[in-house]
Amino acid sequence: MNLLVFGYGYTSRAFVRAERARFADVTATVRSAEKAAQIAADGVRGLEFFHEHVDPALPDAIAQADALLVSVPPDSEGDPVLRVFADAIAAAPRLRWIGYLSTIGVYGDRGGGWVDETDPPNPVSERAARRVQAEEQWLELGRRAGKLVHIFRLSGIYGPGQNALVNLREGVARRLVKPGQVFNRIHVDDIAGVLAASLDRPAGGVYNVTDDEPAPPQDVVAYAAKVLGVEPPPEQDFETAELSPMARSFYGENKRVANTRVREELGYRLKYPTYREALQALAGAGDGR
């Protein structure tokens, strides 16, 4: 099986590293020749794809791909991968699995209520609306071309080098308190596990890739401090805290997201069902020390 990845970032790299042995060939797009050379260490052939620059080898990579993972966000003009390669992807003779990495942000604000894959999107930000449009475009391509498209709606991603333990060590962790506010999270290793499970049981459709316990963000920081044996930062009132418009906008959406299809249809069991198991493991591996 050959894998083609559009956008070789934190999440897609974790998947490739975990599952490299199942693929005969892995090709991934990057933004520069320097990055293409760097990812060779992962056993990955790097091809440039950024704005108007397209590596001439990409059309052949699409034609040879059995699986396609898309980790490139939409821009103001839509999905950049579909804008350039929609026809080539639809015509790819070997392609049997397409995975598109999206976000639970497409559900918008639900006042702290639960949502699952049966709930329709209700985006409240422009970036989430772009995601909804991109999801629809990918699903439409699948219907038109007769290919299985899987939409993976990811919650807040964390993992090695990118977590509350590291934030505490670097002095940037904050305990913002907004009564009733919760967020879902997902460890990058569990994203990789869900993608692998989908490859084993391709069915198409939407999957929420998220943990089992939506939790107040200040509780996660406090637990990370406990794991490290340090004092947590003081609590701050969200209403009076100095935040960027982007950071404040995240707190405008409050929901609890269920991972029903991942559990029931893929049969996947999370390695890290809550932030507690994950932070303990990450600290054991040296994060935050």
Results as ranks from 00 to 15, higher is better:
A129Y: 04
G193I: 01
A197H: 04
S155R: 10
Y223F: 15
G78Q: 04
I62L: 14
A164V: 11
L68H: 08
V206H: 00
N184H: 07
D60V: 12
R96P: 04
I62T: 08
R185W: 09
P160A: 15
H150L: 12
V26R: 02
D189S: 10
G9I: 06
V221R: 01
A65T: 09
V26K: 02
P80W: 05
R153Y: 10
L243V: 07
A128I: 07
K35W: 00
Q38H: 03
A37D: 08
V70M: 08
L58N: 13
L141I: 14
V72R: 07
K147V: 12
D287P: 13
V81E: 08
G46P: 10
L199F: 04
A90G: 14
F250K: 06
W114D: 12
D237Y: 00
Y275G: 11
A224L: 04
I98L: 02
W97P: 01
Y272N: 06
E140D: 14
R83S: 15
V172L: 10
D60S: 15
L4S: 05
S32G: 03
P233N: 05
V70R: 02
N2H: 10
R110I: 03
E239H: 13
G111K: 04
D189N: 01
A21S: 13
Q162H: 15
V54Q: 10
M1D: 11
D190Q: 06
V206G: 04
E117Q: 10
S32Q: 00
E213H: 12
V194L: 03
P214L: 03
P120F: 02
A225H: 02
A283L: 10
L148W: 02
Y275F: 15
R256Q: 14
L168Q: 09
E126M: 10
P120Y: 02
G161D: 06
A41E: 08
A40F: 00
G284D: 08
P245I: 05
N254W: 02
A145S: 12
G156A: 14
H53W: 00
A28M: 06
G171D: 12
P59W: 08
T11G: 05
E48H: 00
A88S: 11
A18G: 06
L82H: 05
A164Y: 07
V70C: 09
Y275R: 11
E126A: 15
L68R: 04
A90P: 03
R131A: 11
R269K: 13
L165I: 13
I151T: 07
Y272I: 15
A92W: 00
E140C: 14
A197K: 03
